[in-house]
Amino acid sequence: MINALFAAHDTRWDTYAAPLKAAFQAKGLEVDLRQDFPPEAVDYIVYAPNSPLQDFAPYTRCKAVLNLWAGVERIVGNPTLTQPLCRMVDPGLTRSMVEWVTGHVLRYHLDIDASIARQDRWQPFVPPLAEERPVTFLGLGELGQACAQALTQLGFPVSGWARTPKDLPGVTCYHGPDGLEPALSAAEIVVLLLPDTKETENILGARTLAALPKGARILNPGRGPLIDDAALLAALDTGQVAHATLDVFRTEPLPAEHPYWAHPRVTVTPHIAAETRPITASRVIAENIHRGETDQPLLYLVDRLQGY
């Protein structure tokens, strides 16, 4: 029998218990899934970073910590975490991110907000074709690649920037410090899908915002700290950035007094771009436990030095 500790808030238990047990059964795994075990009896920890569990030292038998979230920034630096850590790459989450990004890129591209605002008068607007609207992704991991490829299928010229070299069909790829501003220089729409690390914090700041074509638009469904908020507000006020749609923030929920709420060129969405889906995420967890029990490499193993 494999002992798996479910270490997330109690409210998540009813959401995940049945899908996880079904996924274990489908993989032929005999797993005792509980919210409470003696630490020395735990083989795997199914984990959410906002869990009360923050000290991993007593879990001496644990083979891996399996994150339920895509982001690991809250846990990766925990000095007590010596077990392998796997981030969540959930097919359902990926699909929802592709839909959110594609929907908002098309909203910008077709100028849907302005069309709605013109409901009291006849004022035709003919948007350019997709092939005339360059889009740049900052971040070409699993989510960035999936979204970039979806937009290439619609005819958008897509560029992407990553910290390390990437090769993605149909996407012009840049990397490293020297590639960031060239990647932004023609971007009419920028999509941020980078992890939250020391290297990526404020990657969109005064200097990089100035590198964009005047009137560029921004989508951030990635991480709140990727944007220097004060610099973005200044760029919005001058018109250097025409609009920003933001799904993630440094503090969540976004405080009621935050200037983003009232700014006419900002759309706030409440961290809804991509949520882990219990059924598909449970299959990922089950697959990793199966791999751990059959001496196969774990999926989506986090590189502690890179931070993701």
Score class of each variant (00 low, 15 high):
Met88Thr: 07
Val126Cys: 11
Leu194Gln: 08
Gln306Lys: 14
Leu33Phe: 09
Glu132Tyr: 12
Ala187Val: 03
Thr102Asn: 13
Ala26Tyr: 06
Asn78Gln: 13
Val126Ile: 15
Phe6Met: 09
Arg163Met: 12
Asn67Trp: 02
Gly215Ile: 14
Asn220Cys: 13
Cys86Arg: 04
Ala230Cys: 01
Gly139Arg: 06
Ala7Leu: 06
Ile218Tyr: 01
Ala57Tyr: 00
Ala150Val: 08
Ala234Val: 10
Leu212Tyr: 03
Arg265Lys: 15
Gln119Met: 13
Ile272Met: 15
His290Arg: 10
Phe156His: 12
Glu40Phe: 06
Val72Arg: 00
Val158Gly: 07
Thr238Trp: 13
Gln149Arg: 15
Pro128Glu: 15
Thr245Trp: 13
Val76Gln: 05
Ala48Thr: 02
Pro127Cys: 14
Ile45Phe: 01
Arg250Tyr: 07
Val268Lys: 14
Asp14Ile: 08
Ala4Lys: 02
Pro169Asp: 14
Pro169Cys: 08
Gly77Tyr: 06
Leu20Glu: 02
Ala286Lys: 05
Gly160Tyr: 05
Arg291Lys: 09
Ser185Tyr: 03
Leu129Pro: 04
Ala206Gly: 04
Leu5Ile: 04
Phe137Gly: 07
Asp55Met: 00
Leu68Ser: 01
Arg61Phe: 01
Phe125Gly: 08
Ala186Leu: 13
Cys173Val: 12
Leu29His: 04
Leu66Thr: 00
Val284Leu: 05
Arg95Ser: 14
Gln119His: 14
Arg95Thr: 10
Leu33Met: 04
Ala148Thr: 12
Asp10Gly: 09
Gly222Cys: 05
Leu298Ala: 10
Pro195Ala: 03
Asp43Phe: 02
Lys27Asn: 10
Tyr300Lys: 07
Leu93Gln: 13
Arg250Asn: 15
Ala48Lys: 03
Ile272Ser: 14
Leu143Ala: 10
Val89Ile: 15
His243Thr: 11
Asn288Ala: 06
Leu184Val: 03
Gly176Met: 06
Pro38Phe: 10
Arg163Ser: 14
Leu298Glu: 06
Ala41Thr: 12
Arg265Cys: 11
Thr197Asp: 07
Leu246Asp: 09
Val89Cys: 09
Asp113Gly: 13
Ala183Ser: 13
Gly71Leu: 03
Arg291Ile: 00
Pro157Lys: 08
Asn202Pro: 00
Pro84Trp: 07
Gly292Tyr: 01
Thr80Ile: 07
Leu254Thr: 08
Arg95Ile: 03
Thr152Asn: 02
Leu254Gly: 04
Val191Tyr: 07
Pro58Val: 03
Lys166Asp: 07
Tyr47Asn: 02
Phe125Thr: 14
Ala117Ile: 05
Glu199Gly: 03
Leu5Thr: 03
His258Asn: 07
Pro195Asn: 03
Glu188Gly: 05
Leu138Gln: 05
Ala216Met: 09
Leu68Pro: 00
Glu287Ser: 11
Thr136His: 12
Leu204Ile: 02
Ala262Cys: 08
Asp32Arg: 15
Val126His: 13
Ser51Gly: 04
Gln35Ile: 03
Gly141Arg: 12
Ala230Glu: 15
Gly77Pro: 01
